[in-house]
Write a protein that binds this DNA or RNA. Structure first.
Length: 292
DNA sequence: ATGCCGGGTCCTACCCGA
């Protein structure tokens, strides 16, 4: 007997009507036609300091793919063997001291890009990795903060966002199922940071930054967390300083943007606040999305 | 607006993050 699936989010102006967790009326003996896929992002603020945190989280949450940011090391210093022992293959775009992104995957994948297409060849900042797994293009990003180096630093952030939007446009034009996720260093609206947690002139909330994030949404990408939780404070980062975590003075700057066909399959999208309570945590927590 | 914390490195004094 075929399983009748709900169709969702079919109208161009309708956000996906989600969640649709309740499958209680479906026969338990019938497996779903496709197995769910779990894709996550985590700015770990040094992988060498956070190796045990990540191993524990992989065991607890069982993502198929985890993209990491701020690994803060070159590929040779990345503890790839430890993750391989846990069933995850690592692909690393590293750099000494700063930045650095990686993919951990327990499913087969191929690397498509190790830098944001369109960036100058002499740009060595390790902020982008693009893979393809199971027909889904997965892009892990560590978007420039934009607060340092004055106008030049902010201009770099905006140029980076313009190129990311162009990459998204190309993928969407080709109807490629894709998810762009990572540390965007943009709080999309005033609901996305605690009052007083940021200056209104901060690069994370400047209108120019927000406009470029909105542009990617208007291209057809869905902010997974907000699609399922349209209102209210949801944070992914709390500063180490001034008791930010204890006061819940956080920011929502880690995001997952889904292409239309993936957005229609969206089941859950949550930051994992538990990780911020671990000993010696990252200042960011993981964000995981599940698509059916 | 930061540098109160917590990473990093030319290793212990300073740079960087959001």
């Amino acid at each position: 007997m075929p399983i009748v699936r709900h169709t969702i989010g079919s109208g161009a102006f309708d956000p996906p009507r989600l969640p649709f967790h309740d499958r209680s009326s479906e026969p338990r003996s019938q497996p779903l036609t496709e197995s769910p896929v779990k894709i996550a992002t985590w700015n770990v603020n040094s992988i060498r300091q956070r190796e045990t945190h990540v191993l524990g989280w992989l065991e607890r949450c069982q993502p198929d793919v985890l993209v990491l940011q701020e690994i803060k090391c070159e590929a040779a210093a990345f503890p790839a063997l430890a993750f391989q022992g846990a069933g995850y293959q690592a692909e690393i775009v590293g750099q000494k001291s700063y930045n650095g992104v990686a993919v951990l995957a327990r499913v087969p994948f191929r690397v498509v890009h190790r830098a944001l297409p369109g960036l100058p060849q002499d740009d060595t900042q390790a902020r982008y990795i693009e893979i393809e797994a199971g027909g889904i293009t997965i892009i892990g990003i560590y978007l420039p903060n934009g607060n340092s180096r004055g106008d030049e630093g902010f201009a770099y952030k905006l140029a980076w966002m313009d190129l990311l939007a162009e990459r998204a446009r190309v993928l969407l034009e080709a109807d490629t199922p894709c998810v762009i996720l990572g540390d965007f260093n943009v709080a999309p609206t005033d609901e996305d940071y605690a009052p007083g947690a940021l200056s209104p002139t901060d690069a994370l909330v400047r209108p120019e930054s927000r406009a470029r994030l909105r542009k990617m949404v208007w291209l057809g990408l869905t902010d997974a967390v907000r699609a399922l939780h349209p209102h209210g404070p949801i944070y992914t980062f709390w500063d180490y300083q001034a008791g930010a975590w204890q006061r819940d003075s956080g920011l929502r700057i880690d995001h997952a943007l889904l292409s239309p066909t993936l957005a229609e399959r969206l089941v859950s999208a949550e930051p994992d606040r538990m990780e911020r309570d671990q000993p010696q945590p990252s200042d960011h927590v993981p964000v995981m999305v599940e698509v059916s």
